[in-house]
Each structure stands twice: as structure tokens, then as C-alpha cells.
Amino acid sequence: MTKELIRLKVNGELREIAAPAEKLLLDVLREDLSLTGSKRGCDDSSCGCCAVLVDGVPMLSCVAIASCYQDCEIVTVEGIAPPGELDPVQEGYAVAGGAQCGYCTPGFLIATKALLDHNPNPTLEEIRLALSSNLCRCTGYMQIYESVKLAIERAQAREAAKTAPVGS
């Protein structure tokens, strides 16, 4: 087994891992970096539970060979917001019932985050399409859409609070 030094920027931190060259990004994240938020939900890259952002683009970490993503910037569900804080997307899912058993949730959070990062006010159809690589067995997707809508509202509220003049 050839081990290779894999250098990744994960959730804002530079990480160097010695791992077999063919090791999947998902396994590197879970086993070598103890970031167990990303999940393995299937065996053929069809469920979306393992989604992470690679240079801002949502991708499936279960088909990404880690050493092929040298020097890339990876954001996992753990890195969506700084420790102790919640991103509006996380708030939305926490409050509006977007997570039931929770197994698919990290993937949905990542796909939602990527959507709202470049389209802060999507239509329901755009939300459906953006989430159509992610399977959920529990919710019937309805409360997931509610969660995304709430996330949009929360993000707008935060924006408004930031720009509002102090004391008003």
C-alpha cells in the first residue's frame, strides 16, 4: 500500500494526512480527520449523504479520491458555521423539522448551503432541483422545503440587522 501525503484545507484549516493514495475523501474525513458529519448512505453514489463543498461546489465525497483533490478547499457540515454558532441553513433545518432520523441531513445542509450561497432567494422549483441528488426516507421533503424557506428568512433577517443603523 502506497501512502501519500494529502494536503487539504478542511473547514478553513490546513490539514496534512498520510493515507493510501486511493482512499476516498469521505473516508479521509471520517477516519483520519474524525469529521463524522458526512455519511456513507449507499454503495453507488446515489444518495447524497456524503456531500461536501469542494472549492464552493457541492460534490459527493464518496466518489472523490482524496489525493485527487490536493490543495482544495473542503467544507463539511461541521464547517458551515464557526464552532458554537449556527448558519441560517442549520437554524432552518433545526427549527422547521427538516431533520427526522438525521442521516441524510448533513448532505441536505451542504446542498442547501451551496444553493443559497449563489442564489439567496430561490423558487420552490429551484430548491427541488438543487436538492434532487439527495434522498430522504423520512420527511417526504415537505419540511425540508420549509426549512430552506426559513433559512432564507433567517439569512435575510441577519443581513437586515447587519445593515440597520445602530440604535434603530
Partner: peptide, 8 residues
């Protein structure tokens, strides 16, 4: 509601 929707 989540349970109903999921069941459906």
C-alpha cells in the same frame, strides 16, 4: 406533520 408527510 412530519410523520404524516413521511408516511405518505
Amino acid at each position: 406533520e412530519g410523520q404524516i408527510e413521511g408516511s405518505v
